[in-house]
Design a protein around this nucleic acid. Structure first.
Length: 942
RNA sequence: GCCGGUGUGGCGAAAUGGCAGACGCACAGGACUUAAAAUCCUGGGCCCUUAAAAAGGCGUGUGGGUUCGAGUCCCACCACCGGCACCA
């Protein structure tokens, strides 16, 4: 809008309180055992009680990645929600941990540095400064003393330390958990080492150990992105292009570090049952893990030794397998290929290798493949079936080979149709459904062999029977498969944590790796001037000769960790951010994660283990959230943390669209910059609007007009409290001497109607209805309707002649989580000298300093940030008379006013007596009358 | 294709199975003002009637169902958004 008069001097009020909060460290959270200084408002509220005796509330925002673009309006949506709840919980008496920090390593930051021709260290610092300024200007109640930055040595030393925990562990399938690598048993031939020279035995044992570690090195085809000069994890490749930058990626075998997340597939799945996340998010994780139950079956190769092992979820369709397909890269392809078919097979394999992932997975395209010339024998009926290769079978899933059942699998059906392969029925669908391509459960048919029959059995039973038979014969076994792949953990870039790993050469001439001792951490990256990636995949760190080479011929690992490393555990560092001896002290971990002995009676629901509330966008549904859960479980297994899951409750905020209803983007030109909104309407209005738009989780379009609406509401709040004449004087003084800004606020006086008078019953009813609604809505994260309730209160209070101080104070406590700056200013105005001689109706401070505890004495103005949340009194909300709707056959015909205590009979009589109702009953028989006391009357007549 | 979510005035949205549209935006009328802005007051789902109204009818994506009563519960469908997608 064309900026009119300011509704209220937010430009002076907001910086004033932000500075006060900073100087006082108002929102510092206290760890168990810490002594709270007597002058701190926390001490005032809790009367000297030790933090460990108070219930805790850990409320966390997703780790911001400080990009070059600065904050957009989507970021503060979640931040505002968590800030409101943090302030609300403080008012309820919790010890609240609400931290913030910077996820500052990683590709986008490095790309930005390259683009702007600066060192990433520098751009990172600048970006953090921008984010910090923007976040601070919104008045969030973060504990800045716990601020972390993943690029600081004191932070990444612990990232490296956790990597070493992974490196030094293996996953014991017996105990189903990670254990120190020293507990790994060697297979018999390596135990005795019979006949082997000591050096060779040691080298073999090392190879065995290294292959079992949770962090291991492998030479595997990986996604290589030439433009970015690095490999990427599966999760970072979208539609055959890099998620960052959208560059093409290709498959390339390279030596890489991997983390064995697949060992945790089952536990990551099970853990979802114990946490309070949205169904859609849990479902996304389940899909990503992709558990499927089935069987592995061996098909003997005809005319050669060996078997082709396939994975199938439908062993009941084994009789319908009319051919087999191997992935083109499968290692048995050579052995199966006949001389006659070799040219076609080689050509096909070469063609597939050329294809990008996009070409290979593109939708609705024709299936391709070639016959190898080889055959395999179906174990159930001895039939010889041809073996093909085709790129619709993926090497990376299952065994990289399938039995094809074209009768009952859509893909096999397409392929068989195209290549004229036989299609037979082995499942009977329900009547009227074509069996061709029927993939649901049915009844097995045509499934009888010499030795086994499952004909006539329903699918689940048929599966069980044939699997048991295969197992008894030694030809197969029940198997569970996961789509989840191990996590590719190394990057060929500069801007990441170096691996605390050395490479050495053994007596056999083979290279092996070794961990640095913990005492060598943090391992600093070399100060490279030329940090740019190279197109050949040689990491930039390899260029730092002095750093790279160590005295005894050892060299350092030159890969760096991916961006996700630092964000996998930051929520743990917040618990004890300045600890130099450990990533976090155990007492702090147990207290904040909720596993220490129950704290003093909680004011509301008891805490659940883990972070109490985690808020962030859906974009992290499978990357960060899966990685972090994995690391957490490893730390849990090794005894470093006390909960099996990191984040108990998680809420995704919905996307904010542009005013045109489209996703915000520079190219559309519909991006809203929070700085502009703040300059015009202030932080309180901005916060309020972000919450008033609609439910937190919903996608919703931005409307600057809507900001004006809540801004006007804040103006009404201001005018309710402030004397008009004094404001005019203030405005004039400000115009004359704008530089005196803040001190001129002292000119403002409270409105004349505000008095220390007893509230009327009507006023209390309005107040308590508001307390009830705001309290319940905050508990349910319904910020939009809570704000509506505050508006209703103000609309009502504007009509009051006399405004009791006690009522207004309670209102300010309700308002302060949403609009903290304005609330603080008005709060101090209410307590200004001479306002409240005889004290308010509600004793304030309710939880004030104990006679013994208040060394600094009671402050002149009780701190609003720690003022107790008001309780609503249901007795004040009861009505004398009620308006009761009267329906005839379910249709509303009248609304009658009756005493609240009217009996059922009274209600029915009053309803029948209504003049508006009578005509509808004329000439009809009343069949039934439904009377709900205090609710409604419905007369059924015909 | 599969999974999840969402469909309510001109717009953002509210509504334990019980008065659909709270609250806000936009709009219209009025007060204040020389005038405007700001502020304050009033109005409003749609249709039919009417000078205006009253009364009435219709209304929560579509079609069925359960119920005295359905935005809300059940079944089938449609549209949009998000995720996954040759995973055997």
């Amino acid at each position: 809008m064309a900026i009119g008069r300011r509704q209220y001097p937010f430009h002076l009020i907001e910086p004033k309180w932000q500075r006060q909060w900073d100087e006082q460290q108002t929102f510092r959270a206290w760890n168990p055992g810490e002594t709270v200084p007597a002058g701190h408002p926390f001490a005032w509220r809790h009367a000297g009680a030790g933090p460990e005796r108070l219930p805790k509330f850990y409320i966390l925002d997703m780790f911001p990645y400080p990009s070059g673009a600065g904050l957009h309006v989507g970021h503060p949506e979640g931040y505002t929600a968590t800030d409101i709840l943090a302030r609300y919980r403080r008012a309820l008496g919790y010890n609240v941990l609400h931290p913030i920090g910077w996820d500052a390593f990683g590709l986008p930051a490095e790309q930005y540095a390259i683009k702007t021709g600066q060192h990433p260290r520098r751009t990172t610092e600048e970006n953090i400064a921008t984010f910090k300024r923007q976040i601070k200007s919104l008045g969030f109640s973060y504990d800045w003393s716990r601020e972390v930055d993943t690029t600081e040595p004191e932070y990444f030393r612990w990232t490296q330390w956790i990597f070493l925990q992974l490196y030094h562990s293996w996953f014991n399938p017996q105990s189903n958990k990670a254990e120190p690598i020293a507990t790994l048993p060697y297979p018999p031939e390596l135990q005795s080492g019979a006949g082997l020279p000591a050096a060779e035995l040691e080298s073999k044992r090392r190879a065995y150990r290294d292959a079992k570690r949770l962090a291991y090195v492998t030479e595997a085809p990986v996604w290589w992105c030439e433009q970015l000069g690095t490999v990427l994890a599966n999760e970072e490749v979208v539609d055959g292009k890099s998620e960052v930058g959208g560059f093409p990626v290709t498959r390339k075998p390279m030596r890489q570090w991997m983390l064995r997340i697949t060992a945790y597939a089952e536990r990551l799945l099970e853990g979802l049952e114990t946490i309070d996340w949205s169904d859609s998010l849990k479902e996304m994780q389940r899909n990503w893990i992709g558990r499927s139950e089935g069987a592995e079956v061996d098909f003997r190769i005809v005319g050669a030794p060996g078997v082709i092992r396939v994975f199938t979820t439908r062993p009941d369709t084994l009789f319908g397998a009319t051919y087999m397909v191997l992935a083109p890269e499968h290692k048995l392809v050579d052995a199966l290929t006949s001389p006659a078919q070799r040219p076609q097979v080689e050509a096909y394999r070469a063609a597939v290798a050329q294809k990008s992932d996009l070409e290979r997975t593109e939708l609705a395209r024709e299936k391709t493949g070639v016959f190898t010339g080889g055959y395999a024998r179906n174990p159930v009926n001895g039939q010889e079936i041809p073996v093909w290769i085709a790129d619709y079978v993926l090497l990376s899933y299952g065994t990289g080979a399938i039995m094809a059942v074209p009768g009952h699998d859509t893909r096999d059906f397409e392929f068989a149709s195209r290549f004229k392969l036989p299609i037979v029925q082995v499942v009977e669908p329900p009547a009227g459904v074509d069996w061709r391509g029927f993939v649901e459960d049915g009844i097995s048919v045509n499934s009888t062999g010499a030795d086994i029959s499952i004909s006539g059995l329903p699918t689940p039973e048929a599966k069980r029977k044939i699997t048991a038979w295969l197992e008894a014969k030694g030809w197969g076994k029940p198997t569970v498969n996961y789509k989840l792949r191990d996590w590719l953990f190394s990057r060929q870039r500069y801007w990441g944590e170096p691996f605390p790993i050395l490479w050495k050469t053994g007596p056999d001439g083979r290279a092996y790796h070794e961990a640095l001792p913990e005492s060598a951490l943090p391992l600093m990256p070399p100060p490279l001037e030329d940090y740019k990636p190279t197109p050949d995949g040689q990491p930039p760190l390899a260029r730092a000769r002095e750093w790279l080479n160590l005295p005894e011929g050892a060299t350092r690992e030159t890969n760096t960790m991916p961006q996700w490393a630092g964000s996998c555990w930051y929520y743990l560092r917040y618990l004890d951010a300045r600890n130099r001896a450990a990533f976090c002290a155990p007492e702090a971990e147990r207290y904040w994660m909720g596993t220490s002995a129950p704290a003093a009676a909680p004011a509301a629901a008891p805490s659940a283990p883990g972070v109490d509330l985690y808020v962030g966008g859906t974009e992290h549904a499978v990357l960060h959230l899966l990685y972090a859960r994995f690391w957490h479980k490893v730390l849990y297994d090794l005894g470093h943390v006390s909960t099996p899951e990191p984040f108990f409750k998680l809420v995704n905020q919905g996307l904010i669209l542009g005013e045109d209803g489209q996703k915000m983007s520079k190219s559309r030109g519909n991006v809203i910059n929070p700085d502009d909104i703040l300059a015009e309407y202030g932080a309180d209005a901005f916060r309020l609007y972000e919450m008033f738009m609609g439910p937190l989780e919903m996608v919703k379009p931005w409307s600057t007009k809507g900001v004006e609406g809540v801004y006007r509401f804040l103006g009404r709040v201001w005018r309710l409290f402030v004397d008009e004449q004094s404001e005019t004087e203030f405005e004039q003084a400000l115009t004359a001497e704008p530089q005196r800004g803040r001190e001129l606020l002292a000119v403002i006086r409270r409105a004349p109607g505000i008095a220390d008078c007893p509230p009327t019953a009507a006023q209390l009813k309005v107040l308590h209805a508001c307390i009830k609604k705001v309290t319940e809505d905050l508990d349910g994260l319904r910020f939009n309707t809570a704000i509506a309730a505050l508006m209703v209160f103000i609309n009502e209070a504007m009509t009051w002649e006399a405004k009791p101080v006690a009522v207004l104070r309670d209102f300010l406590v309700l308002l302060h989580p949403f609009a903290p700056h304005l609330a603080e200013e008005l709060w101090s105005l209410l307590f200004a000298a001479g306002v409240s001689e005889s004290g308010p109706a509600r004793p304030l401070p309710a939880g004030g300093p104990s006679p013994a505890g208040g060394a600094a004495g009671a402050p002149a103005v009780p701190p609003l940030s720690y003022a107790p949340w008001p309780k609503f009194d249901p007795a004040l909300l009861v009505e004398d008379t009620l308006e009761i709707p009267v329906q005839i056959n379910g249709k509303l015909r009248d609304v009658i006013t009756v005493p609240a205590n009217a009996s059922q009979a009274d209600l029915e009589a009053a309803a029948r007596a209504s003049g508006k109702v009578k005509p509808f009953l004329e000439g009809k028989t009343v069949r039934k009358v439904i009377v709900l006391p205090k609710k409604l009357v419905n007369i059924v007549a015909a």
